[in-house]
Simulated assay, not measured.
Amino acid sequence: MRKVIFLDRDGTINIEKSYLHKWEDFEFEKNAIEGLKKLKKLGYEFIVVTNQSGIGRGYYTEDDLIALNNEMMKKLKEYGIEILECFYCPHHKEKGIGKYKVDCDCRKPSPGMLLEGIKKYNVDINNSYMIGDKKGDLEAGEKAGLKSILVLTGYGKNTVKDIEDNYLIANDLLDVTNLVK
């Protein structure tokens, strides 16, 4: 079984930018690469799970997102960091358009993307984590049976006021390495 860290993308791996979908606008969060390198040395593999309602709202396409994720994975690979897969939810039950206007089980805080990753990659949930900057990330991790860690990057500094004490908190992905075993 695999030890995996499930990662939210926007605000966790990269700097939060409204409906980011172009590689030229992508910037890694402070200490993200260093943190991922250290987590890899601790034996973790990585899966990205990201809500992308911008697709459902018609702001950009699934192809735009896939191209951006592929560039991110290519850049991370240059640092020796491999992402097993990037799962994404394009849906939004109120603001989605057409086929994207659905109440799905993949949009965080629902655990659908995580459960799919757990099954597909034979993840050891007792030794794996969900890391993100929003309450929905933490709740999705909890619903999937994972320990969840809030990072204070992205929306994390605002989120910290609204979460229960049962979640671990780290300044950024490098600081996460002090909380995992």
Rank of each mutant, 00 (worst) to 15 (best):
K75R: 14
K75M: 11
L76F: 03
L76R: 02
K77V: 13
K77E: 14
E78S: 11
Y79P: 05
G80V: 13
I81C: 08
E82S: 10
E82F: 07
L84W: 04
E85K: 15
C86I: 15
F87H: 12
C89E: 07
H92R: 07
K93M: 13
E94W: 01
K95G: 05
K95R: 12
K95E: 13
G96E: 08
I97L: 09
I97Y: 02
G98N: 13
K99S: 09
K99M: 13
K101R: 15
D103S: 10
C104N: 08
D105R: 11
D105M: 10
C106I: 10
R107D: 09
R107H: 06
K108W: 06
P109M: 08
S110F: 08
P111Q: 08
P111Y: 05
G112E: 12
M113C: 07
M113G: 06
M113E: 07
L115G: 07
E116K: 15
E116C: 04
E116M: 14
G117R: 09
G117F: 14
K120L: 10
V123L: 00
V123A: 02
D124T: 11
D124R: 13
N126W: 05
N126T: 14
S128N: 07
S128T: 13
S128Y: 03
Y129A: 02
G132A: 06
D133Q: 02
K134H: 07
K135Q: 13
D137H: 10
E139R: 11
A140W: 00
